[in-house]
């Protein structure tokens, strides 16, 4: 296995790992807040569940990026291509936008959504506003995903 291939695999791992950590932390935090509300009023479960799901998307974006990268370098499909060190670095760098933004936005979205659980707890009719506020953070994860995918598809192999 070439150095380039190792670097590209590290890139795929980082995308899945960091974005996954961000999502796990975010979902965990909202889950804590949601459990607090449900322990007092179980009827609010479905409303707080939507908020809990929101920070989970970064992990999916990381997974998607990792699969695309692995597919591009032939690891998925069974015919790995031969990568130079420069190409490996390029794939590693391409994975960073979703890895880093996924990590941070997952945690930040978790905080926003957990705060939104408070809105749902007090004023269940305003649940939509809490969802919108938490969803705004998603924009930046989507932008990072887009850039990562564009970079991965445009690196010459």
């Amino acid at each position: 296995m070439t150095n380039g291939m190792v670097l590209a695999i590290i890139g795929a791992a980082l995308a899945a790992l960091l974005a996954g950590i961000g999502s796990a932390k975010g979902v965990g935090l909202v889950g804590e807040a949601a459990s607090g509300v449900v322990s007092v009023d179980p009827s609010k479960f479905s409303k707080v569940l939507i908020l809990e799901l929101l920070p989970g998307t970064q992990g999916l974006y990381g997974l998607l990026t990792a699969i695309l990268l692995l597919s591009r370098i032939g690891i998925i499909g069974g015919s790995p291509v031969s990568l130079t060190t420069e190409q490996g670095i390029a794939f590693l760098v391409a994975s960073l936008p979703i890895a880093i933004v996924g990590l941070i936005s997952g945690m930040v979205q978790g905080k926003t959504a957990a705060a939104g659980v408070g809105i749902t707890a007090k004023k269940p009719d305003h649940n939509g506003k809490a969802i919108i506020m938490a969803a705004m953070v998603e924009t930046y994860a989507i932008l990072a995903l887009l850039i990562s995918i564009l970079m991965i598809y445009n690196i010459a192999v």
């Binding site: 935090l29 807040a33 607090g36 509300v37 659980v117 408070g118 707890a121 007090k122």
Partner: peptide, 15 residues
């Protein structure tokens, strides 16, 4: 982000 669950429960009780 400490006490996220406690704060959420308290917000439900504030009603």
């Amino acid at each position: 982000t400490r006490y996220a669950d406690a704060v959420a429960a308290v917000k439900a009780l504030e009603g």
